[in-house]
Design a protein around this nucleic acid. Structure first.
Lengths: 342, 342
DNA sequence: ATAATTCCTGCACACGTGTGCATAAGGTGT
DNA sequence: ACACCTTATGCACACGTGTGCAGGAATTAT
């Protein structure tokens, strides 16, 4: 059994209250006893019980983080940003992955509530809104990341997907493309929609029409779905000269399929990704993408939550705060002028 | 403030003990009152306090997991396996990343101890042994994964790296290679050493000598270090015809560097990886690698820990249990016969 | 009708920590 | 010597939950 403050009290001949105060740095206790107690605590390998402490203080110093999937390299960088901010404020993370599974989602929400997490960061674009509201209803401060059902949530950090998508589209248009297609991910809801809208806006600005078959969605972001997307576009009566992919994972799969089908990128076809995950620099050719400030996004989200926890203004649910971060275009080698004979 | 069993007791007109028993499914309580209490609990949105419960029962239903870095796609698949096993046994995960940082490591250990995690799984090959011993000394059941300081730990699951490396080497030898080099990762300690040994064993079996400059280590597994490795080998007086990389990440970086230097894989040079992470299937050319059963490794580790928790045999530290899993060779297109004129 | 048995529920304490209040010891002023 | 103030510590209770034990009510046996 682990040593408790009572054990320390017994050994140093004081009451457990004195020990509690001494370890807490309360100046009421004399320096002599304080250092005596601290020494004993060290020798006995004392570790305070988080459970007992939270029970008393009503805070756990733990913040919950909900992501789609730990597999997704995109989230892991966001997690980094969150962890740095949390750690330096003395908070630990409780990470849970929903895996797009409603049963798991419910499970996660329940666990967070039972654990009495001080706050929750939702990074899962597909997380069902009612589960999130459940947390809000139970008084949990919630910050959402890249989650576009903001009608429900007062505190959010997100990336300007509209702008990012426009940057990519503009880049392609400036290269001379007009027959551009969009490969979306139906499971990502508003995020995919925003990127689609950015594309559409910019095409309209340039005076180009988009053929309806040039917009296609697959059910997820696994690379193998990129192949499915490519097949669709290559079977169109008129082929696009460029494809904007919802994210890097899809683009990576699509590039792979291109190679198998003998389509040369970027000579025959330009391809873009979104997010700038590590591996997007190592494809053939290296992927032109939109560098999303993932670390900053996570960091800002955590800071916002910490601020909420410090000021307790979450109760006044009239307040409302959101921050929008912009990414920047990263031109590598998967985009080029369209070939003259296409 | 969240509702407690006392609130429910007040509302249903019974004592809090009765509520506790009713919700716990104790058959001593009559069915009538049990269902009445359950109904009230549901209506009031009751969620038990994990803190209070653990304080009383002395178990948290949480198991800690320590990994090197969440970024590493290798670990995320292991986490999957762990989570599945844990979840179905009613346990939650407390995940922490050491990031190779001793300060963070100490911090993690302390947090695990304060949280009174029921057990710990260490998946970090670089995790310092004394930190692990600290956990053991405090009575934590510990299972280590792919951690080769087993002299200290009684319970471990690991992959047979020696065998895997031999499979890869044999494959190359059967293709006709004899000038084979090994690119290791100094930070991965024993793991890298085992893979090196497998390579050496198999070369010896075939009667081949290894030139000392054909063994080279870099400080990490980031893809960009693959380039450094390639440079080293290409500057050797006699160049290797095949390179065995410590893992896929390094191999991916090395392949990329090959392209930039105009080296054709596999015609000029064969390259192998290790682990079979998702992206290894999408490189150019797709990577020949060793498919490590990551999910199973995680799953078995969790099951072993759960078994320890159930039987409490961890106290009898004479027991000792380990499981070794073998991976299998996955031949893609980054390996081929050596070119005749090299 | 009373005793014995079963069934159900409440009392009281415990887990480890934090904190308001009382109080004892020591010091300073007259 | 006495009242007064400061300093240092202990007492007792609280947080939310679980559980051994006692005891009341209802049922059955005598």
């Amino acid at each position: 059994m682990a040593t408790t403050i009572k054990d320390i009290a017994k050994r140093t001949g004081v009451s457990h209250s004195t020990v509690s105060r001494a370890l807490g740095g309360n100046t009421l206790i004399s320096e002599a006893t304080t250092s005596r107690i601290r020494k004993a605590a060290r020798e006995m390998g004392y570790q305070p019980s988080a459970a007992a402490r939270s029970l008393k203080t009503n805070q756990t110093k733990v913040i919950g983080v909900i992501v789609n999937s730990i597999d997704d390299p995109f989230f892991s960088e966001i997690l980094f940003g969150i962890e740095d901010a949390a750690q330096s404020a003395g908070y630990s993370l409780f990470i849970a992955a929903s895996q797009y599974d409603p049963y798991r989602e419910q499970n996660i929400v329940q666990t967070m509530m039972e654990q009495r997490t001080d706050g929750v960061i939702i990074c899962s674009s597909s997380f069902s809104a009612d589960k999130g509201r459940q947390l809000l209803a139970n008084g949990f401060p919630v910050v959402v990341v890249n989650y576009k059902a903001n009608e429900n949530f007062n505190f959010s950090i997100y990336h300007d997907d509209l702008d990012g998508s426009q940057q990519l589209t503009r880049h392609l248009i400036e290269l001379g493309h007009s027959k551009i297609a969009y490969l979306g991910n139906a499971k990502s809801g508003r995020t995919s929609l925003d990127r689609l809208n950015g594309f559409q806006n910019e095409m309209q600005n340039a005076g180009f029409k988009i053929r309806p078959e040039f917009i296609y969605e697959v059910e997820g972001s696994e690379p193998e779905l990129g192949e499915q997307g490519l097949n669709h576009f290559m079977n169109c009566p008129e082929r696009p000269t460029a494809i904007i992919c919802f994210n890097d994972m899809l683009a990576i799969g699509l590039l792979h399929a291109c190679r198998q089908m003998g389509i040369h990128v970027p000579e025959d076809l330009s391809v873009t990704g979104f997010d700038n995950i590590t591996f997007s620099a190592y494809t053939t050719p290296p992927l032109t993408t939109l560098d999303q400030p993932k670390y900053s996004i996570g960091n800002e989200a955590a800071q916002l939550l910490l601020e909420l926890l410090a000021t307790k203004i979450q109760s006044s649910n009239t307040t409302h705060k959101e921050k929008i971060l912009k990414g920047k275009l990263l031109i590598r080698h998967s985009t080029a002028k369209p070939s003259p004979h296409s």
